[in-house]
Amino acid sequence: MQLSRQTEEKLKKLKGYTGITPNVVARLAFFRSVESEFRYSPERDSKKLDGVLVLDKITWLGETLQTTELVLKMLYPQLEQKMLIKAWAAHVEDGVAAIRNYKNLKSITQAL
């Protein structure tokens, strides 16, 4: 699984500010996006998943693996696995936009 380069850069900056690793921030961003009612549209998706941080599913999702997969299948029952990964990446990108400007761990936890 991978993200776009732009999203990866935002995750790395957040790690620098907060100390939270990119995979954990990606989990927070995903659920933040789902809660905000963002919905992925394959027809409007032109983003390439060109990031260099390619991790396996368990590393990206950790203890949220089953929950994340269930949420994706609930929201997008018609999508195949490859497209579900793109949907996940789109949600991470959307969610990280909402939390990317926090400069420390305290401010990010208060916002969540």
Rank of each mutant, 00 (worst) to 15 (best):
R44P: 15
W88E: 09
L49T: 03
K47S: 08
V52M: 14
A87Y: 04
A89S: 13
V92L: 04
K48F: 06
V34F: 10
L72Y: 08
K48T: 12
K57G: 14
W60N: 00
D45S: 08
L49S: 12
E37F: 05
W88G: 08
V34M: 07
L49P: 10
G51F: 01
L75P: 07
E37Y: 06
T68E: 13
M83V: 14
A89G: 11
A29Y: 00
V71G: 01
Y40F: 08
G51C: 03
E80R: 12
L79S: 02
L53V: 15
D50N: 14
Q81R: 14
T67R: 05
Y40T: 00
R32T: 08
K48L: 12
E43L: 15
E93S: 05
A89R: 10
P77D: 07
T59M: 02
V54D: 13
M83F: 11
R44I: 13
T59R: 02
T59F: 00
Q81K: 15
R39H: 14
A89V: 12
R39T: 11
R39Y: 12
A89C: 09
F38H: 04
T59I: 03
Q78H: 12
K73P: 11
V52S: 10
T59H: 01
L75S: 05
V25S: 00
W88D: 13
V71P: 01
R32M: 12
P22W: 10
Q66S: 11
L79Y: 02
V71T: 04
F31G: 02
R44V: 13
A29H: 00
D50V: 06
E63H: 06
P22N: 14
I85N: 14
L49A: 13
Q81W: 09
G51Q: 02
L55M: 13
D45M: 07
M83Y: 09
T59K: 03
V54I: 14
M83H: 10
M83A: 11
K86T: 08
M83K: 15
L75H: 04
Y76M: 01
E93G: 02
Q66L: 14
W88T: 07
A29L: 01
L84N: 15
